[in-house]
Amino acid sequence: MPQTNLSYPMEAPAAGHWREVCKGVYWLRQPMPMALNHINVWLLEDGDGLALVDTGPRTEETVEIWTRLLSAPPFNRKLTRVFVTHMHPDHVGMAGWLTRRFGVRLWMSRLEYLSCRVTVSDMNREAPKDAVDYFHEAGWPDAAIEKYRARFGAFGKMIYTLPDSFQRLSHGQNIRIGEGDWRVVIGRGHSPEHACLYNEKDKLLISGDQVLPRISSNVSVHPLEPAANPMADWMESLDWLEKNIPDDVLVMPAHDECFHGLHARLSHLRESQHKSFDRLREVLSQQPMRVVDTFAALFSRPIDASSTHFHLATGEAQACLNYLLERGEISRTLKDGVAWYAGST
Rank of each mutant, 00 (worst) to 15 (best):
A143S: 15
T119D: 06
P246E: 01
E257T: 10
G24R: 05
S165G: 13
L325Y: 11
T99M: 07
A339K: 08
P128C: 09
V185L: 04
N76H: 14
G261A: 10
L79P: 12
A154M: 10
P57S: 11
G93K: 03
D90E: 14
C116R: 04
G328K: 03
L324D: 10
S207P: 09
H255F: 10
H222I: 10
V184N: 02
L212H: 12
H190G: 14
N37K: 08
P302D: 08
D336S: 14
M87Q: 14
M10T: 09
K275D: 14
L162T: 13
H88F: 14
F299W: 03
H274S: 04
N244L: 01
V291T: 15
G103I: 06
N244Q: 04
N244S: 02
I177F: 01
M252D: 02
D247A: 13
A150H: 12
L169P: 03
R176K: 12
R281S: 11
V53T: 05
V184Q: 02
A144Y: 05
E11G: 15
V249H: 02
I175K: 01
Y323E: 04
F83P: 13
L205E: 01
K129E: 15
I330W: 07
L52R: 12
R332M: 13
R19N: 15
F259W: 04
K201V: 01
V249T: 03
V92Q: 00
H311K: 11
A313S: 15
H88Q: 15
P31M: 07
S344G: 08
S344P: 04
A35S: 14
S191Y: 06
A150V: 05
V21R: 09
D247P: 09
P33L: 01
